[in-house]
Write a protein that binds this DNA or RNA. Structure first.
Length: 874
DNA sequence: GATGTCACG
DNA sequence: ACGTACGTGACATCC
């Protein structure tokens, strides 16, 4: 049997928190019963039980506002405003729900929920039972020990901060018992007791670093130098001791309940379902296997396609064609089901073989959701599609680049809440994903998808028209999707023997480094584990740590670079890291995508990024090493026939050119018109040098970092960290930069202002990114949104430009019947396989079409190279 | 599934 | 005082 685990919930704290986290207006039953706290608590409970798998459980509540603490100190919690009626009304339901779930709840006159928890935790510990306490209240951390953990709820319903003695020590540097002394000194504003005036968390922690508790502190008060703080401590001594008593959670409350009573009982599913039904919390209704819950609501009329009714497809002129797959990688996926539909004429089937070339030839155009996927799946089955005139996935992305377009169902969900069941509900997930046993459930779901498609399209189209985005969809993104389809199908040749050879070499180096490191350190450990490595570096070797992560000390490159002078082991670790990255991600990783002929086919995701860039997956061919020793990996990428070559063209400084254009800054424009090295030109400006003056490599480095910083939505903090100067110095660079490029400053300010007023920013091609966080109260979120407002128009416009170039290049290749083909895009670079005899035309037309993709106030510059491998074209 | 790390533009 | 540079994806570890 599993080990016993008792979960103690602070029912009051969790219910309050749920109430304030969810807007009650959105959670009220048709009878007018507020349900936000009930709903939130259920979500929290489900997630806790799933994560912690307790065997016993108890939810503790406050019996009333009056407790032994109010007897002790009449103002205790005296500043609390009255519990809102909407919340009070929910407590009876909360208790009912807990009972139905088989969870014991308990309250005790004169005591708070905390005291019940403290008492039970102690009892359980005495019986050797592990205890987990879940609450929103940090005070409970005084109860932790080696067998008791406290989970403090964070944002959302399933995030917790886990407190055990180590974590507490690390975070605050104190023991669980000292939590009480800290409250004694600082007081508690929400519980309304004072502590010592002028002592906050910082001071309290400092004092508790010197004395184990306040008793000791007051005994040795004479040792303290005279100060305001000392006066406060003396004056408020009585308050401090009283606060300590108030803050102490009782572990001896006279509870009438035993550990045995907390055993989790089987939940009453029928009872729960009718409870949720009554409160209109339909989404919580528990699904049983052969069930009503898989029923789509308001399914439109449809027909199941078969040989009998297939001729009905002849009436369709411009239908939606949709293939359902479980595997998102359509280069391998099987088609599980299919929709062919126009408004009011919906056909669905599991039998993909019903689709023939003859049928497809009867359609003038088709609509799709992910036309690239549809095209490639059809291609794999020797079918060619009619021209795609509309794609909802892409249109929805153009409407709002933040939309989740991972499936048709989620896109529909972006426009219509609770219109359609999720794919996960219908098909399941993970290893158990499958078509529902009952065909009707599948067909209903597909019919809903078809209907949802048409309804969503109407909304999207209205938006695109209103926002002047039709051209972006029709002239850029839609044609681009077919360009990408061809690139993906083409693939790129991998020289496997070369890759294997490199793998062997890496391996022997890895082994050698490993033994050297272990020998030097004096023990073996898992070098790939940041945690174990941190233990070796900072505990065993006593090197000075500099950066922290959630789990401990960081061992990232920047930390290790600082440590290099201390020990040669650090050098070896850095080398080991680099080599094992190359081996696992590139040498081994890439070979997994070779299915025999040495050609690998990535997928370019066209609706993934919020800026408009593409991304690449399975494998990612946009992050193949380009610098350092790793770039030899590129020698494994070649043309597929001996007499063909690779050719690559990349935009030089496209983002800064875009910035010069959008801002209209005359000095930056002049620098590009004169074809200056932009970083040199910037160095001259920020260091106030004569044009053309000699600059040091360091000046150029700083200027380059500042240029990058500007593009990313500069902050003095970020720039300082990057170039290793003080924040002040970084701020001075930025200031000078803005003086020298004044319109860049205007652009930055205007972008943020625009985002605040309009709620979004846009690129040259009217691609939008909405930035709701621009109004956030949270400093981080708001500032992040502000940097995004500055960066997205730049990064996104550069993405627009290369997309335009790609479409015109592909059109040219097709028009001229050239054999050469475009195979890769890496944000500012295009790579081609060039057929013998086409070198000249490709070498001139590609840079020309890239140059002229768009007319800016500055020239675009393109650099190009031929070579045998990807390594050679740079 | 989240986290840390590191590869790219 | 707060505490980050913008945009991605893959791998290994750990919970």
């Amino acid at each position: 049997m599993d080990k016993e685990k008792l979960l103690l919930l602070d029912g009051n704290s969790l219910t309050y928190r749920s109430f304030f986290a969810l807007n009650v207006n959105n959670f009220t039953s048709h009878e007018g019963i507020p349900t936000n706290a009930i709903y939130g608590l259920k979500r929290v409970l489900d997630s806790i039980v799933k994560d912690l798998k307790p065997t016993k459980m108890l939810a503790a509540f406050d019996a009333s506002d009056r407790t032994f603490r109010t007897e002790l100190y009449s103002d205790y919690k005296g500043n609390r405003s009255k519990t809102p009626d909407e919340l009070s009304a929910q407590f009876p339901y909360v208790h009912e729900m807990l009972k139905l779930m088989g969870i014991t709840s308990y309250e005790l006159q004169d005591y708070e929920a905390d005291d019940i928890i403290g008492t039970l935790a102690k009892k359980a510990n005495e019986q050797g039972i592990e205890v987990v306490i879940v609450t929103g209240d940090r005070d409970l951390t005084q109860l932790i020990n080696d067998h008791t953990t406290v989970y403090i709820t964070q944002k959302g319903f399933s995030n917790y901060e886990t407190y055990n003695p180590d974590h507490l020590k690390e975070k605050l540097g104190i023991t669980p018992k000292q939590v009480i002394d800290m409250k004694a000194l600082t007081g508690d504003t929400s519980d309304n007791y004072p502590g010592v005036q002028g002592v906050g968390e910082k001071t309290a922690l400092k004092l508790l670093g010197q004395y184990p508790n306040i008793e000791e502190l007051y005994q040795h008060l004479g040792d303290l130098k005279p100060s305001k703080m000392k006066e406060n401590l003396i004056r408020d001594q009585k308050q401090a001791f009283q606060s300590k008593e108030l803050a102490t959670i009782r572990t001896d409350a006279p509870i009438q309940i035993s550990i045995e009573d907390t055993e989790i009982k089987p939940s009453n599913i029928e009872g729960l379902n009718s409870f949720f039904e009554k409160l209109d919390m339909k989404s919580l209704i528990i699904k049983t296997s052969n069930d009503e819950n898989l029923k789509e609501k308001d399914v439109p009329a449809y027909q199941v396609l078969s040989l009998e009714n297939i001729s009905a497809l002849k009436e369709l002129k411009e239908p939606l064609i949709y293939f359902e797959t479980f595997n998102s990688n359509y280069h391998e996926a099987e088609i599980k089901a299919m929709i062919i539909a126009e408004r009011g004429k919906i056909f669905v089937t599991k039998d993909f073989s019903l689709l023939t070339s003859e049928i497809l030839a009867g359609f003038e155009h088709i609509w799709t959701f992910d036309g690239k996927k549809t095209f490639i799946l059809a291609n794999r089955h020797q079918l060619s599609l009619p021209k795609i005139s509309y794609d909802l996935m892409i249109a929805s992305y153009v409407d709002d680049s933040g939309h989740s377009n991972e499936s048709l169902a989620t896109t529909i969900d972006d426009y219509f809440d609770e219109f359609i069941l999720s794919d996960e509900t219908v098909y399941g997930k993970g290893v158990k994903i499958s078509l529902p046993e009952n065909d009707q459930i599948l067909y209903d779901h597909l019919a809903k998808k078809a209907e949802g498609y048409f309804l969503s399209k109407d909304i999207v189209d209205a938006h695109l028209k209103m926002h002047e985005q039709v051209e972006l969809l029709k002239q850029i993104e839609l044609p681009l999707s077919m360009v990408l389809a061809k690139m993906e199908l083409e693939g790129i040749k991998l020289n496997k023997s070369e890759l294997k050879r490199m793998g062997k070499e890496f391996d022997s180096n890895i082994h050698e480094l490993k033994s050297k490191i272990f020998a030097e350190v004096g023990q073996e450990f898992n070098l790939n584990s940041p945690q174990q490595l941190a233990d070796i570096l900072f505990n065993v070797m006593k090197l000075p740590p500099s950066k922290k992560t959630k789990r401990g000390y960081s061992t990232s490159v920047e930390v290790l670079e600082e440590l290099r002078p201390h020990s040669q082991v650090v050098d070896w670790i850095l080398d080991y890291r680099q080599l094992s990255k190359l081996k696992s991600t590139y040498v081994d990783g890439l070979q997994k995508f070779d299915f025999g002929n040495g050609i690998i086919h990535t997928r370019f995701l066209q609706t993934m990024t919020s800026t408009g860039r593409l991304s690449s997956v399975d494998p990612n061919l946009q992050n193949i090493p380009a610098r350092g020793m790793g770039k030899i990996i590129r020698k494994a990428f070649t043309a597929r026939q001996n007499d063909w070559q690779l050719f690559s063209s990349d935009y030089s400084q496209i983002e800064l050119r875009v910035l010069a254009h959008i801002s209209g800054d005359p000095h930056m424009i002049k620098a590009f018109e004169d074809d200056r090295d932009i970083h040199q030109a910037t160095a001259e400006k920020i260091y106030h040098l004569e044009p053309g003056a000699e600059i040091t490599p360091d000046m150029r480095r700083v200027a380059k970092a500042t240029n990058f910083g500007i593009v990313y939505g500069i902050s003095d903090y970020g720039l300082a960290k990057n170039i290793g100067v003080t924040r002040k110095e970084a701020a001075a660079f930025i200031n000078t930069y803005f003086e020298e490029y004044p319109l860049v400053k205007v652009f930055m300010d205007n972008s943020v202002k625009f985002a605040r007023e309009e709620g979004y920013v846009e690129t040259l091609s009217h691609r939008r990114r909405y930035l709701p966080d621009i109004h956030a109260k949270n400093f981080n979120l708001r500032h992040f949104a502000e940097r995004t407002a500055m960066n997205t128009p730049i990064q996104g416009s550069a993405a627009d430009i290369i997309k335009i170039a790609m479409v015109s290049i592909q059109n040219y290749l097709a028009d001229q019947n050239l054999k050469s083909r475009m195979i890769l895009q890496v944000h500012d670079e295009l790579t081609f396989e060039v057929a013998p005899g086409e070198e000249e035309i490709i070498g001139s037309i590609v840079p020309k079409l890239m140059d002229s993709a768009i007319k800016l106030k500055v020239p675009l510059k393109v650099e190009s190279h031929f070579g045998e491998t990807w390594y050679d074209v740079h």
